[in-house]
Nucleic acid binder design. Structure first.
Length: 602
RNA sequence: GGGGUUGUAGUUCAGUUCGGUUAGAAUGCCGGCCUGUCACGCCGGAGGUCGCGAGUUCGAGUCUCGUCGGCCCCGCCA
């Protein structure tokens, strides 16, 4: 290695010194006599100058033929620039070259390698190795490394043991679709790629490792989104002899440490705790963004005698009239209010939601104005004046509670975004607690687990007999389960697990598995629980999402070195691909042609 | 499985309404000139399977049907 320092790290200390830089040519500017080359490496850009007065002819000849993305090694003296470039951190210095080695040429790249490149993302994904040269992605990839490093260092200090768990595992029937891998030795049988190391981390606890973690790759064969990739990384963490408080404590200290180390941001602790029901009632979602207030409030009582037909109907149908107050919304123009109405309608149409009227009211000198002004009685007006300020704009929806509260939840986020209520540098965590253990699947008419079937029920509810096949009882049973939400995005779920095999059996039975099926699929786990399983629990924060939020980005693809498209393709390697007939034959696999399938089903 | 949107020089786009001569621009690339640029400048040049395949038509980048990609979203994601 001849390089003596990185391009972005050249500073005053090196003035007058001879240094060697290696890297890529960002740009060459040949002014006829003097030639400039901007050299780029992962640290930044530095200007090299070649002068006819002080450079040999051969050196000038090589420099003249240098093109973008050529790889060069250059030696020279660092000096101050007579006309600094304020746009570059190193713009006040330059190197007067004395030696130049062309290490490799480059074809003209298909797109400009700078942060404000004009190429579209699909092209950049084909040439991801070029895209990754852009400072933006270099910064993201390195930042991600810093986050993972901070996590490891913190957990090592806390006495956690890093354990690798297998990638080729038994297919688990519950939850997301598995990626499956055919077995050659056992034809007709398949491994699955893990959706998470869930069972192995529990088994690690039973094995006595006490505090486990892993930066684990997880695979789920479901459709992607901008915040979802088919393979993703979790910090998987589990501890024995713990309750919820222990998990909250270690998680809060971990995140404080990550944000302090990587962003120099102080995170407020303890994280606010919000029960699942309260989250749904006040925020209309189980992943509330608590960076702003604007909570959902119930106005049903206020309008119970209303002369407005829609309200009358709603009250009759035991629906609700819910609303949010937009602070400083009273000065919204007609146009702004219309835009909100239009946006709401659009949402309802495209998500096929119940179409409710959009009602707005405001108070001006004690006088109520708005869509249903003429229906507001004197009593109602005075009650309203007690609840809204002159600066507020009140938006009301009437209908079935579950529907309108989630719509208000979405509206709440929309307003916060458009009214710029959110500070980009604000990070607010909260715990969502007291989730139900089960939920009702209307389509299949069966009970399912809300989180996963290894979550322990709330022991009070267990003693009340709610752990039952009876739907009414089961749906009342709370779980020892918690979500960690950051800025309105679900970062993580965790729970205290079942260590009592009887309870574990019961839960699997309630979700409709026969004893034989339980033994076949989860026999190893239930066996393990019988041989001295300690109480244990854990959590598994998503690293990709965490890094995305920390960097203020909207797309997960910007925090993966090598992401897939929204349809699960790797445009660079063209995966997935067909395989040789021989490979399939070895696995005992016959392909069913797509056309045949179409004929049969059509 | 469904909805929306998109595909034209290497790249980003215009042209599609209402079919009609040789498909344009910017940028990049190549050549020449240029001694302080930094998105260098000036002059010149090359560069096109209009995603692919059928169809309608005297004639299709433009209309119809199919198909293959990209992006966003619903469903799905214990």
């Amino acid at each position: 290695m001849n390089r003596t320092c990185y391009a972005g790290e050249v500073n005053d200390c090196l003035l007058g010194k001879k240094v060697t830089l290696c890297g890529w040519v960002q740009r060459q500017r040949d002014l006829g006599g003097v030639i400039f080359i901007d050299l780029r490496d992962r640290s930044g850009i530095f200007q090299i100058v070649f002068e006819p007065e002080s450079c040999e002819e051969e050196l000038l000849r090589i420099a003249k033929n240098i093109r973008s993305e050529f790889i060069i090694e250059v030696v020279g003296i660092i000096r101050k620039r007579s006309n600094p470039n304020p746009n570059l951190p190193t713009g006040y210095l330059e190197m007067l070259a004395s030696e130049l080695t062309l290490l490799n040429e480059s074809e003209t790249p298909p797109f400009l390698i700078t942060d404000n490149t004009d190429a579209k993302e699909d092209l950049r994904l084909v040439y991801r190795f070029l895209d990754l040269r852009r400072p933006f992605l270099q910064k993201n990839v390195i930042f991600r490394h810093e986050v993972v490093k901070a996590i490891r260092e913190f957990l090592y200090k806390e006495g956690f043991i890093e354990i690798e768990t297998p990638m080729l595992i038994r297919s688990t029937p519950e939850g997301a679709r598995d990626y499956i891998v055919p077995s050659r030795i056992y034809q007709g049988k398949f491994y699955a790629l893990p959706q998470s190391p869930q069972l192995f981390k529990q088994l690690s606890m039973i094995a006595g490792f006490d505090k486990y973690f892993q930066i684990a790759r997880c695979f789920r064969d479901e459709d992607s989104r901008s915040d979802r990739q088919p393979e993703f990384t979790q910090l998987d963490l589990e501890m024995s002899f713990v309750n919820e408080e222990d998990i909250y404590d270690i998680t809060e200290r971990l995140f404080c440490n990550i944000f302090k180390t990587c962003l120099n941001v102080n995170i407020q602790t303890p994280f606010q705790r919000i029960s699942y029901l309260k989250a749904l009632t006040e925020y209309g979602t189980d992943k509330p963004d608590i960076r702003f207030e604007m909570k959902i409030e119930d106005y049903s009582d206020l309008f119970k005698e209303s002369s407005f037909p829609v309200f009358q109907k709603t009250i009759e149908d035991s629906g609700r009239i819910l609303g949010i107050k937009i602070a400083d919304g009273s000065n919204y123009s007609r146009k702004e209010i219309e835009n909100l109405q239009e946006w709401m309608k659009e949402q309802q149409r495209s998500f096929r939601l119940q179409e409710t009227g959009f009602i707005w009211l405001k108070s001006n000198n004690q006088e109520i104005q708005g869509t249903i002004k003429k229906y507001v009685s004197i009593t109602e007006a005075s009650l309203l004046n007690g609840r809204i300020k002159e600066t507020d704009l009140l938006v009301l929806l009437a209908g079935k509670e579950s529907e309108i509260s989630s719509q208000l939840g979405v509206l709440r986020n929309h307003i916060a975004k458009t009214a710029k209520l959110i500070d980009k540098n604000d990070f607010k965590f909260c715990w969502i607690t007291d989730f139900p253990l089960f939920k009702w699947n209307e389509e299949e008419q069966k009970i399912e687990t809300e989180h996963h079937p290894f979550t322990q029920p709330n022991m009070d509810d267990y003693r009340e007999g709610y752990l039952s096949e009876e739907k009414e009882k089961a749906l009342k049973c709370r779980a020892r389960c918690y979500d960690l939400v950051l800025n309105g995005i679900e970062l993580s779920s965790g729970s205290i697990r079942n260590h009592d095999p009887k309870i574990q059996y019961k839960i699997l039975e309630i979700i409709g598995m026969s004893k034989a099926e339980i033994d076949r699929r989860f026999g190893f786990l239930l066996d393990a629980l019988k041989y001295g399983a300690p109480p244990h629990g854990g959590i598994a924060p998503g690293i990709d999402r965490l890094v995305m939020i920390m960097l203020g980005l909207d797309s997960l693809r910007d925090v993966y070195a090598f992401p897939k498209t929204s349809t699960g393709l790797c445009l660079m390697t063209k995966a997935p691909s067909e395989v040789d007939k021989e490979q399939l034959a070895e696995l005992g696999i016959n392909l069913v042609s797509k056309n045949v399938e179409k004929k049969e089903t059509g």
